[in-house]
Simulated scan of single mutants.
Amino acid sequence: MQWNGEFLAFFLLSVMAIGGAVFMIHFTRVVHMVLALAFTFLSIAGIYVLLHAEFVAAVQVLIYTGAVSILMLFGIMLTKHRTSDHSDSRSRHQLLSFVGVAAFFGVIMWVIYHTPFSGGKAETAKYTVANLGEWVFKQYVIPFELTSVLLLAALVGAVILAKKERDA
């Protein structure tokens, strides 16, 4: 294992991603959970940059960090939610959760270190951003447009439901 800048950046970004996910699970306020989730998404986008997948990193930032996080915040603001915190003692539950996560981590690390990975190079010449755009807008244009219509219908339905709740 070499300690170079790329390894250090990957280590920091992965710790930030895992930390954001742990904070998202640990927080009790929904807004804090969304911010921790956005932090996790940004860290994952940084990992994509390290993998030289700049397009995927940009899509990660635009779609997940931007759109999904903002959509979650709008959903929180449009719905009625309780702001009271429930601070019941969950120490036994937390201990069992920690033991389960530690065991799962151990199994995953054992599988990673005992799995032989091939060192072959992937053929990336035909998987470019231009080809992706060509596939989406030529071969898959109907599913792409149907997805956008479905998302628009969901947005209109959410606004109508929020307006009905506010009027009641």
Rank of each mutant, 00 (worst) to 15 (best):
Y127P: 00
L71S: 09
N131F: 05
Y113M: 14
A67K: 05
L73A: 03
R90S: 04
S87M: 08
I18H: 01
L73Y: 01
Y48I: 01
I25W: 02
L13G: 04
F10T: 01
V129D: 11
K138Y: 06
I18C: 08
R82L: 10
M33S: 08
F105S: 14
G133K: 12
I47D: 00
L161V: 10
F10H: 01
L152V: 07
F41V: 03
A67Q: 04
F104L: 15
I63L: 15
G106S: 12
L96W: 13
W135P: 00
V31N: 06
G19I: 01
I25M: 10
L8K: 07
V15A: 14
Y127T: 02
A36Q: 05
M1R: 09
G20R: 00
Q60A: 07
G157R: 01
L73R: 02
F74E: 02
Q60D: 10
V111S: 12
G46D: 01
H86L: 14
W110Y: 15
G19H: 03
L73M: 15
A125V: 13
A53Q: 08
L161M: 13
V49R: 10
S69V: 03
I142Y: 02
G19N: 10
G100W: 09
G46C: 02
M16H: 00
T83A: 12
M77C: 08
V59K: 04
D85Q: 08
Y127E: 05
Y113V: 06
W135V: 05
L150Q: 04
S43D: 01
L62D: 11
F7Y: 06
Y113N: 14
F144M: 04
Q139L: 05
V30K: 06
V34L: 12
K80E: 15
A122P: 03
L51G: 06
L50I: 03
I76R: 03
G5E: 14
F104K: 07
V149G: 05
L146E: 09
R92Q: 07
L96H: 11
L51N: 07
L37A: 11
T147R: 05
Y113Q: 13
V56L: 13
V101F: 15
H52Q: 09
G100L: 14
F117S: 14
E54D: 11
Q2C: 11
T28M: 03
V159D: 07
Y113R: 11
L151N: 08
V22Y: 09
A158R: 03
T128H: 10
S97D: 11
Y64C: 09
Y140G: 00
L50E: 03
A103F: 15
F104N: 06
I18M: 12
A9G: 00
Q94G: 04
L152F: 11
A168F: 07
L51S: 07
I18S: 12
A125H: 11
G75S: 13
A38Q: 05
T65C: 15
G19R: 04
T115K: 12
S14N: 02
S118F: 02
G157K: 01
L155I: 13
V59G: 07
L146K: 11
A102R: 08
L51Q: 11
F74V: 13
F117A: 14
L152P: 00
S148W: 08
T65R: 04
N131K: 06
I47P: 00
V136G: 02
M109R: 06
R90N: 06
I112E: 09
E123C: 04
G120W: 03
L78W: 04
V149F: 11
L151G: 06
G157H: 02
V61P: 01
A102V: 12
F27G: 00
I63Q: 14
L62C: 13
F74D: 01
